[in-house]
């Protein structure tokens, strides 16, 4: 739903880091607990960049699984549902290890000849 706004934010950041160079790829890392649909983000990206300097730039979306570490039994659990619970002892005292990411990881640019 808000993927278009996110695409705008990505484009602004990418243009700043590209510093005038041609960008071929953009890599973003998005955690499982974020409400971002990768297909929708890529579609918005194509729509938004069409006709701009970023036209044709590939957006690679890395999905980061949601992992919690249990503070009681020290087990690590990979979550499917957004319920912060240890799958081993069913305790709720857990620390989120990954899954909250919302990051522009890197861009590939062509060096100016």
């Amino acid at each position: 739903m808000h993927e278009l706004a996110l695409s705008q934010a990505i484009a602004a950041s990418v243009e700043r880091h590209a510093d005038g160079r041609h960008v071929t790829r953009v890599r973003v890392r998005i955690g499982h607990l974020r409400q971002v649909v990768p297909e929708s983000l890529r579609f918005s990206w194509t729509l938004l960049t069409e006709g701009s300097a970023l036209d044709g730039t590939e957006l690679l979306v890395e999905h980061v699984p949601a992992v919690v570490a249990c503070n009681d039994c020290a087990e690590m659990s990979t979550l499917d549902l957004p319920i912060l619970v240890c799958h081993a002892c069913h305790g709720h005292d857990v620390t989120l290890v990954s899954g909250d990411e919302f990051l522009i990881d890197s861009i590939d640019v062509m060096e100016v000849a």
Partner: peptide, 17 residues
């Protein structure tokens, strides 16, 4: 021909916001 370079960004997606 020229190859591309990867530039690390590592910036929160909504850093400007």
């Amino acid at each position: 021909e020229t190859g591309s370079t990867r530039v690390e960004v590592l910036e929160a997606l909504l850093s400007e916001n």
